[in-house]
């Protein structure tokens, strides 16, 4: 090793630390594919819970999908909901424990296909929960089938020649529906494919947690994400493909912000 390289000892000194695993993340290794947006979003949520100091007040609801094992990674109380039903599960938890922070975490199949009714009605009732929606345009867990959010022309294992509108309809913009429901208080669409976007997503999810204390309604954050395995791309290419194809259809930004917070 050359003399001018910084030694390991030097490197792990407190003042040289630029990143630390949140205490809210357990030591269990993520099972996610390399480059998957689920991992980054988990990390963001864990950091927010830690920074807000709300570990003992937080109850999470995991979906059925790639993130079904979220409870293995988050050191908070969690429930694993049936496919699509996380908003109903969270509704009851929050109503019975109104002082707690309750969040759901769901993929697009879970939230926007099988669980559409629960999603819309929880938001319409204005349940005081935080909903995180990972939109990767595909069913990751079951091997890459078409999701309601799959783009037109996009290939999946059940649309091997690309999604055809005449057969399968158009991709659903769930967050655009949600934003129109008076029950929602804060609605945002973000992504985690660049450091700058990670910071923006963290800001949005943090607000979505903080606003829960106000009891003003549902806070909903969509995270447009990649699925390197399902899309059959390497992580870098998948992020590029996402930026080029997903983001024009699912544009990023805050979609509903409280008037006094503007």
């Amino acid at each position: 090793m050359a003399d001018d390289t910084i030694s390991t000892k030097e490197l792990i000194k407190e003042e040289n630390l630029v990143y630390k695993k949140s205490k809210i993340l357990t030591d269990n290794e993520f099972h996610y594919c390399p480059g998957c947006g689920h991992s980054t979003t988990h990390r963001i949520i864990a950091e927010i819970i830690e920074e807000m100091g709300i570990q003992s007040e937080t109850i999470g609801v995991a979906p059925v999908g790639c993130s079904v094992f979220m409870y293995n990674y988050m050191d908070v109380d969690m429930q694993e909901a049936a496919h699509g039903r996380a908003p109903a599960v969270a509704t009851a938890i929050k109503r019975l424990l109104p002082e707690k922070y309750v969040f759901t975490y769901q993929g697009d199949g879970d939230l926007a296909a099988i669980g559409t009714a629960e999603t819309i009605h929880a938001c319409n009732r204005g349940e005081n929960i935080t909903m995180i929606f990972i939109n990767n345009g595909i069913y990751g867990m079951t091997g890459g089938q078409m999701a309601p959010t799959t783009l037109v022309g996009m290939k999946s294992s059940t649309t091997p020649y690309g999604r055809e509108v005449s057969l399968m309809g158009n991709p659903i913009k769930m967050t655009d529906i949600i934003v129109n429901l008076p029950g929602t208080y804060f609605v945002s669409r973000q992504s985690v494919h660049t450091p700058a976007n990670v910071r923006k997503t963290k800001k949005a999810i943090r607000k979505a947690f903080e606003y829960q204390a106000l009891n003003k309604g549902t806070c909903f954050v969509e995270v447009v994400s990649n699925c390197p395995s399902g899309w059959k791309m390497n992580p870098v290419d998948s992020n590029k493909w996402m930026a080029d194809n997903m983001l024009p259809f699912y544009p990023l930004g805050d979609m509903k912000v409280p008037e006094d917070q503007d």
Binding site: I59, V61, Q79, A81, A82, R85, A88, V89, A90, T91, A92, I93, R95, L96, L97, A117, E118, H121
Partner: peptide, 14 residues
């Protein structure tokens, strides 16, 4: 009823 039973799941889990 699907939502109702899953509300029971959440409430019972709490």
């Amino acid at each position: 009823e699907v939502a109702a039973i899953n509300m029971l799941y959440g409430g019972a889990g709490a």
